[in-house]
């Protein structure tokens, strides 16, 4: 409200005193005021908060409903659909855990292996591309960047045939290797950019102290690259937790299913047992939610295609 009168005053001032912009600019009070309310405008703060809250409630309601229902028996679900009930049916969680536990373990193992592979390959490649001059550097790097343009679905069919020919269907390998191959592309680009920005003085100092390439990689590049390694790892985990078609097609053995495909089958088995079903969904969401809670900055960087520092 006061904001509006501000604007009004400003407009009047401007109309009356054309040649006085310096005063407006240098006037301590004016600058002070504008700093306090940098981007107001005609809308009241209360209304803004109200609308944002409404949007947030609408967006989160399905998940809250899922969480609430995960503690209900079928009877509680039918009797009081919209409200939480007592007592909490914790049984749902043990039922669900019992069924999705293998998917969980597989997903975590696949994620860990994929992270290890991706980080190892991309950090080394990033270091070499960023810090060494060699014949074919541009071409080789270009070949990696080019892969950013190959959509994952496009290689689904030939990759499946390849894996079948290699006799790798229904193994951990068939889950892990393609993940490394797809996440290593962006990871290498990110690592190279990052390592290229490490000040040259550090490398010179290390060289003077007698460090060779491997030593510089181990004691200089790796420790300094931890933030980007974190981003890369998160990207890989998110990838494993969201990849659907590949595990769906290459895995038929139940205990090798990853979370996404496992949940789809889990749903098939529990048709309308909403309590255990939603308990399972909740459990499956936990790892990413935890990562989001504690590493939200890297998480966002991951979502935005690995551009750390975007957003506050």
């Amino acid at each position: 409200m006061s904001e509006r009168s501000d604007v009004l005053t400003a407009r009047r001032t401007r109309a009356q005193l054309r040649p006085l912009p310096t005063e407006v600019r240098s006037g301590g009070k004016a600058a002070d005021r504008s700093r306090r309310r940098p981007r107001g405008g005609g809308i009241g703060q209360g209304a803004v908060i109200l609308v944002l809250t409404a949007i947030a409630v609408v967006a989160l309601f399905p998940y809250l409903f899922m969480f609430m229902t995960s503690f209900k028996t079928n009877r509680q679900f039918n009797d009081s659909y919209w409200i939480p009930t007592w007592p909490l049916e914790l049984e749902n969680y043990s039922t669900a855990w019992h069924q999705i536990q293998p998917y969980f373990i597989t997903s975590i193992l696949v994620a860990l292996a994929a992270i290890a592979g991706t980080v190892a390959l991309s950090s080394l490649a990033g270091f070499l591309f960023a810090r060494y001059e060699f014949v074919g550097r541009g071409v080789l790097y270009g070949m990696i960047v080019m892969l950013m343009m190959v959509p994952p679905v496009a290689s689904l069919i030939p990759m499946f045939v390849l894996m079948r020919d290699l006799g790798l269907l229904n193994t951990m390998t068939v889950l892990i290797l393609p993940h490394i191959a797809s996440s290593v592309v962006l990871a290498t680009i990110l690592m190279r950019t990052f390592v290229a920005q490490i000040p040259q003085e550090l490398f010179d100092a290390a060289r003077i102290d007698g460090a060779g390439g491997p030593r510089m990689f181990r004691s200089l590049v790796l420790p300094l690259s931890m933030p980007i390694i974190g981003t890369v790892s998160l990207l890989t985990v998110i990838g494993v937790w969201n990849d659907f078609f590949w595990p769906l097609l290459v895995i038929t053995e139940d205990k090798l299913r990853t979370i996404p495909v496992g949940l789809a089958f889990f749903k098939g088995q529990n048709a309308t047992e909403w309590g255990p079903l939603f308990a399972g969904y909740t459990l499956a969401s936990l790892p990413l939610l935890l990562l989001f809670t504690f590493l939200s900055k890297y998480f966002l960087a991951g979502v935005q295609g690995g551009l750390p520092g975007t957003g506050k």
């Binding site: 947030a56 899922m66 937790w241 789809a264 969904y281």
Partner: peptide
């Protein structure tokens, strides 16, 4: 910051969970 964080929480759920909840 608070609203930005709350508004993007759904991103932290696996895509499969979101889709399955909506199919419910």
């Amino acid at each position: 910051f608070a609203f930005r964080t709350i508004l993007i929480v759904p991103l932290a759920f696996p895509g499969v969970v979101t889709v399955l909840v909506w199919s419910f």
